[in-house]
Write a protein that binds this DNA or RNA. Structure first.
Length: 691
DNA sequence: TGTTGGAAAATTTTT
DNA sequence: TTTTCCAACA
């Protein structure tokens, strides 16, 4: 079917490169989209065009990096389609009603979970599996490490998180243990045999417990596609597959894409090699660089016109990324030739940096730039601690993205473990977590009770026979009743289930943790959150695969007059933009991070990360660096580390306006401006300090 | 089972 | 400097 004149009209808002990407046929397509070049717009128009061209939206798969990105994409596609329907009707053209709501969208992991619940049975995977997050996997590794007696070796065995890192990298980069150890974890090579035993047990145990972890979701999806019957079934579901942020996919994901569309027909990938920042998760920039060789007849379309930043900012970002050794040459340009030069701020110490950033943010607000149009970016979550305290003290609302999340706090994990054990009584890690909360019950009894439950086929009634130790007497009967009720007919309603767990667990929480009040309020929020999910399995899976990124996400859609500043790790800022951007701690040791300068490849990734931070800015860009700073393990002082980031050599510095920070007011002055502190501020603060 | 002390190791980004 | 791990003890 030829595109209608109506769709041509809608596509007329795109520039030439964008339009040719949108109307490209079914041959493999690689869109190399520089920062701020209208990537989302282009992709949304392409999807709308496909649908208008007769492709059933339910047969389009849109793989994104976060659920937020997926939601945004669906919203945009739907908007374009509504416009299309409207225009067609006005012209009296006969067109079917199009909708973007039926699109398959989500992260690789979320889509994997959906497909595995639908088709898993055909490869012998029961659909009732629960999903483990990273810390659950660490817990399981820890159990197995003890069982296999690996911990008592004379030399120190790698810690549990290192074990998971190694395992995960093997799976996601499709490389052998030996290979991964030699290249990425050379100090663990001596444990190769023990690790192999450990991982074998890990795989067995996950199967036995009916759980899948992040890596399994991809691995099993890959397996599903490799199976002749199931693979054909999945492949026949989709006509087109579009992948966003392709530079941050790993080899396993690239193979999944290839298995989905072996000939590349209907495949579109979008990305920017200059923004590849997830190699620690085994992402490889080779996926996007090698795409044209992998798929025959690939058309490569670059997007170079930037609609986000002013030219003075682009001049700097172009030069910064120009320092990279391996990249696709491209020069971003903007029609907005005028603008303030970016500012390089020399601060004596972190307090001065904080003072400068806050006063500048307030000045911008005075000039009409809302707080929500401004963002403070940093390399590591910890880097914003001082700023957060000061913002709270001055009553300036903010939201922090990245770092420790709500669902990773111990009390939320506890509550979720009850729900998960009810959903899947074979889930050993969740069972252990829940049982250990009871006084008088330790590792030994926990193990026995879980084995008992397993033998009973997951029927919690077997626990009624158990004679609890004195300390657990008060709790045991109530606990078993709770677990039975969670799976009984009386407690169908999900928020009510959460509430019942809350009532039982609240008591234990107060015995176990400090800040009990704040934690209890978190759990109330969780109860509210449960309202948004249709059933328990969906709730558990979604919360694990896409946890609320900030506390704001829990409060529901923000109201219009709700203005707040954004604080974010650079990683979590990917794909976003603000009028004014402040980059903190642009000093060697922090950017690039001390921990990521072992080799050239790592340093180059830090450079790209810095590039991502700078390219978030539309009009104003501030890069701050404190001269005197605290460095872990070295104490406080003026360090050689604390010099301006190596990513801004003299030549590039010339493009900045340089200035000094603002000294913090004297101590007594500060006391005078002390505002009232709300519980919300304290909660926000304390939350970020728990682990 | 639960707590405590001491030694050793790590210190970032996240689906 | 702080966190994590493990062994010994109550």
């Amino acid at each position: 079917m030829e595109p209608t004149p109506v769709i041509d009209e809608i596509l007329s808002t795109l520039n030439e490169q964008q339009r040719s990407a949108a109307v490209h046929g079914r041959d493999p397509l690689l869109i190399v989209a520089g920062a701020g070049t209208g990537k989302t717009t282009t992709l949304a128009h392409r999807v709308a065009h496909l649908i208008a061209d007769g492709v059933n939206p339910a047969r389009i798969l849109l793989l994104t990096f976060t659920r937020r990105a997926a939601g945004e994409m669906v919203r945009r596609v739907d908007g374009i389609l509504r416009q299309l329907n409207h225009l067609s009707e006005k012209r009296g053209a006969r067109v079917g009603k199009y909708s973007g709501k039926q699109l398959w969208g989500g992260t690789f992991h979320a889509v994997a979970a959906r497909l595995l619940r639908m088709h898993g049975r055909s490869i012998g995977l029961e659909p009732e599996f629960t999903v483990h997050d990273r810390s659950d996997s660490e817990d399981l590794i820890n159990v197995l490490r003890t069982e296999l007696d690996l911990a008592s070796a004379e030399t120190r065995f790698p810690r549990k998180s290192t074990c998971i890192d190694i395992y995960s990298r093997c799976v996601n980069s499709r490389r052998s243990l030996q290979d991964v150890l030699t290249n990425s974890f050379p100090w663990c090579v001596q444990y190769a045999d023990d690790l192999r035993r450990l991982f074998a047990a890990f795989v067995d145990r996950k199967e036995h417990n009916a759980v899948l972890d992040y890596d399994d979701l991809l691995l099993f999806w890959h397996g599903l596609l490799s199976d002749p019957a199931a693979g054909t079934a999945i492949r026949s579901r989709f006509d087109c597959v579009l992948v966003d942020e392709y530079q941050d996919t790993n080899l396993l994901q690239a193979e999944i894409l290839q298995l989905l569309r072996p000939d590349g027909q209907g495949v579109t990938v979008v990305g920017d090699d200059a923004q590849s920042i997830y190699s620690f998760r085994a992402a490889t920039v080779r996926n996007i660089l090698d795409f044209p060789e992998t798929y025959a007849n690939t058309r490569v379309i670059p997007l170079e016109q930037n609609y986000r930043s002013t030219q003075p900012i682009l001049d700097v970002t172009n030069e910064v990324i120009g320092q990279a050794q391996q990249r696709h040459e491209k020069k971003l340009w903007s029609e907005q030739t005028q603008g303030e030069p970016p500012v390089l701020v020399h601060c004596q110490d972190e307090d001065e940096q904080t003072e400068f950033v806050i006063s500048e943010i307030l000045a911008h607000r005075e000039k009409g730039v809302d707080l929500r149009k401004q963002a403070v970016l940093f390399r590591a979550s910890q880097h914003s601690m001082t700023l957060e305290l000061e913002l709270a003290r001055r009553n300036i609302p903010f939201h922090k993205y990245g770092g420790l999340k709500f669902v990773e706090t111990a009390h939320v994990k506890d509550l979720m473990a009850y729900m998960r054990l009810a959903e899947n009584p074979r889930d050993f890690v969740s069972g252990v977590r829940v049982l250990l909360l009871l006084p008088g019950i330790g590792p030994k009894r926990t193990r026995d009770l879980m084995l008992l439950l397993n033998d009973a086929g997951g029927d919690f009634r077997v626990w009624e026979e158990f004679d609890p130790p004195a300390a657990a007497k008060d709790y045991w009967a109530k606990f078993v009743e709770l677990m039975r009720n969670l799976n009984g007919p009386k407690l169908q309603d999900l928020p009510h289930q959460v509430h019942c767990v809350f009532e039982f667990y609240g008591d234990l929480l107060q015995r176990k943790y400090d800040h009990a009040d704040a934690r209890l309020r978190d759990l109330e929020q969780l109860e509210q959150l449960a309202n948004r999910f249709p059933d328990r399995a969906t709730f558990l899976t979604e919360i694990t695969l896409d946890p609320p990124a900030s506390t704001q996400d829990l409060a529901g859609p923000p109201t219009l007059d709700d203005d707040y500043l954004v604080l974010s790790t650079i990683h979590s800022a990917k794909g976003l933009e603000w009028d004014a951007v402040y980059v903190l701690h642009a000093a060697d040791g922090k950017i690039p991070s001390d921990m990521a300068t072992k080799n050239e490849a790592e340093i180059e990734e830090e450079l790209r990360l810095f590039y991502v931070a700078l390219t978030r800015a539309k009009n104003s860009l501030y890069v701050c660096f404190p001269l005197n700073d605290y460095m872990p393990g070295r104490g406080f002082g003026r360090h050689s580390m604390s010099q301006l980031t190596r990513f801004l050599p003299k030549g590039i510095r010339k493009r900045f306006h340089e200035r000094t920070g603002i000294a913090a007011p004297a101590a007594d002055e500060q006391v005078e401006m002390q505002p009232h502190i709300t519980s919300e501020m304290i909660r926000r603060q304390s939350r970020s300090m728990w682990s």
